[in-house]
Amino acid sequence: MDTDKQPPQTRRKASFLASMKAVFWSFFGVRKRRDYEDDAANLSPFHVIIAAFLGLAIFIGVLVLLVRVAVAQ
């Protein structure tokens, strides 16, 4: 019997809020390697895609708002 084998680790899926946080920091290009590896192991790809589209919509909305304020003055 091999005693060097470790029991399989249970992978806990991260919440949608964790996906939003990861996408937010990715927009800025600032992630620690350890955080990136944790995200890759725990985040759901579906949550990341939805969070990215939501983050993109918020980003475009803020840009449109800034342009409207700048043009109105």
Rank of each mutant, 00 (worst) to 15 (best):
L54H: 13
K32F: 03
Q9G: 08
V30F: 01
A52T: 15
R34V: 09
F24Y: 15
V69Q: 14
K5L: 14
S19D: 02
F53D: 06
R11F: 05
V62M: 12
G55W: 01
A22Y: 06
G29D: 04
S15Q: 10
F24H: 12
T10S: 13
D2P: 11
F53K: 06
S15K: 13
A70G: 01
F53Q: 13
R68A: 11
S26K: 02
D4A: 10
F24A: 14
D35Y: 08
A41P: 02
A70T: 11
V30A: 00
A22T: 04
W25H: 09
M20H: 02
K13N: 04
G29S: 02
R31E: 03
T3S: 08
K5H: 10
D4I: 07
F28A: 02
V23D: 00
V23N: 04
V64T: 14
R68V: 03
W25C: 06
Y36E: 12
A41K: 08
G61W: 08
L54E: 14
I49Q: 03
R11A: 09
S19Q: 06
I50Q: 09
R31C: 00
G61F: 06
V23Q: 01
K32M: 11
D4E: 03
F53E: 07
K5D: 13
K5G: 06
W25T: 06
K32A: 04
D39Y: 12
A70W: 09
G29P: 01
F28S: 10
F27C: 07
G29L: 04
A70D: 04
F24C: 09
G55E: 04
V62R: 14
D39F: 15
T3L: 13
L63Q: 15
L65S: 08
F46E: 09
E37C: 07
A22I: 06
V23L: 02
T3G: 05
L17C: 06
G61T: 10
F59K: 12
K32D: 03
R31Y: 00
Q73M: 13
G61N: 09
F59A: 07
F46I: 05
A72Y: 13
A14L: 12
Q6S: 15
V62L: 06
I58D: 11
F27V: 03
R33N: 12
F24S: 13
P45Q: 07
S15I: 04
Q73E: 13
P45G: 12
S19W: 02
A51D: 00
K5C: 10
V64Y: 05
V69L: 11
L65M: 08
Y36M: 14
L65F: 10
K5P: 01
I49H: 00
A41W: 03
T10Y: 10
P7C: 04
K5Y: 11
K21N: 07
P8C: 09
R12S: 08
P45L: 13
A40M: 13
R33Y: 03
L54G: 05
I58T: 08
F27K: 05
M20Y: 03
I58V: 14
V62N: 12
L17H: 07
G55H: 04
D35C: 11
A52I: 07
Q73T: 10
N42P: 03
F53Y: 14
I60C: 12
H47T: 01
R11L: 15
I60F: 14
V30E: 01
Q73D: 14
M20R: 11
